[in-house]
């Protein structure tokens, strides 16, 4: 069933359009920054964007920071919200279940397809922005430095002021890709759950986004600090800890854990609701 879901995912033009749009946003930002040479000052605007003027290899991480807050979660909510409700709308849900596809199995396959979608989207953003970064901002050539570091493959500066080699950047960007992907799964699980509640894909996607916006507001609210460690968006920006030296794992670990909990809880709720639901669509 997973294979079937992946084929459906791949053969759906809408999914590719959304990924292309996701890739286009950072490219647009890159063009503006490259043309004007006006990056936001360090510590402001999307994280690391200030650093890309000096080195294009950091742009994949900056690009992820650009799509992470709104664009990516919207795409994920739409795809996840469509997973069951979309089948119901197309009239295919009854045929799939009568095939028979086990209901729990269908949910699991939908979740796997969703993970693959997010991973595809994030990897595509990273790859296109890497190419864009190299083309528009270039990469620092080998240098002997004033502080005596003579490594000829030092290319970028971490948040802690230390040097990052291309291997460092590659590994840390890979970590960011994994973290951003996992960060989206909480929203995805909420949308998937709502998708089993309603026959409207749009309703499910909007519900998940509403949950997300609520979470975002509460995270920013001081008086809600007691609950903020449990909110799905609390650790979203912690990917930036990959670019500190040493890597600060605390929030990254928590980010992974909180998403795992959200996936577990909402997938469980989706299962409880869907496994014995009357399919009347």
């Amino acid at each position: 069933m997973i294979g079937v879901e992946l084929v459906k995912l791949a053969r759906r033009p809408r999914n590719w359009v959304s990924i292309v749009l996701l890739c286009a946003l950072p490219v647009t930002v890159a063009i503006f920054v490259a043309v004007t040479h006006l990056a936001p000052p360090p510590g402001q605007g999307p994280a690391l964007l200030s650093a890309v003027l000096s080195d294009g290899q950091l742009f994949p991480a900056a690009a992820l920071a650009i799509v992470l807050p709104i664009f990516l979660p919207v795409a994920v909510a739409v795809v996840a919200g469509d997973s069951i409700a979309g089948e119901a709308n197309a009239g295919m849900l009854r045929y799939l279940l009568a095939r028979p596809v086990g209901r729990t199995k269908l949910l699991a396959a939908k979740l796997v397809a969703l993970i693959v979608y997010v991973l595809l989207a994030v990897v595509f953003v990273a790859v296109t922005s890497y190419v864009t970064g190299r083309l528009l901002f270039g990469s620092k050539p080998a240098a002997v430095t004033s502080t005596g570091i003579t490594t000829n493959n030092v290319v970028a500066t971490s948040l802690s002021g230390t040097a990052l080699t291309p291997t460092d950047i590659l590994l840390r960007t890979a970590g960011t890709v994994a973290f951003v992907t996992v960060s989206m799964l909480g929203v995805g699980a909420i949308a998937l759950f709502l998708s089993t509640m309603s026959d409207s894909s749009l309703g499910a996607a909007l519900g998940a986004l509403a949950a997300l916006i609520t979470s975002g507001v509460l995270v920013a609210l001081n008086s809600a600090s007691a609950v903020s460690p449990y909110l799905p968006t609390r650790y979203w920006l912690s990917w930036v800890d990959f670019f500190r030296q040493p890597i600060l794992w605390r929030d990254i670990d928590r980010g992974f854990a909180i998403q795992a909990i959200y996936v577990l809880v909402f997938l469980g709720a989706a299962w409880a609701n869907f496994a014995s639901k009357d399919i009347t669509s």
């Binding site: 000096s54 570091i149 500066t157 002021g161 230390t162 990052l164």
Partner: peptide, 24 residues
């Protein structure tokens, strides 16, 4: 402390190692 460990950090961690781009 929200997290603490009583292990001794490496000397390299507590020594500034500026990248070539860094102003001094």
């Amino acid at each position: 402390f929200l997290d603490v460990s009583l292990t001794r950090p490496a000397l390299s961690t507590v020594t500034p190692q500026p990248a070539p781009e860094v102003g001094y």
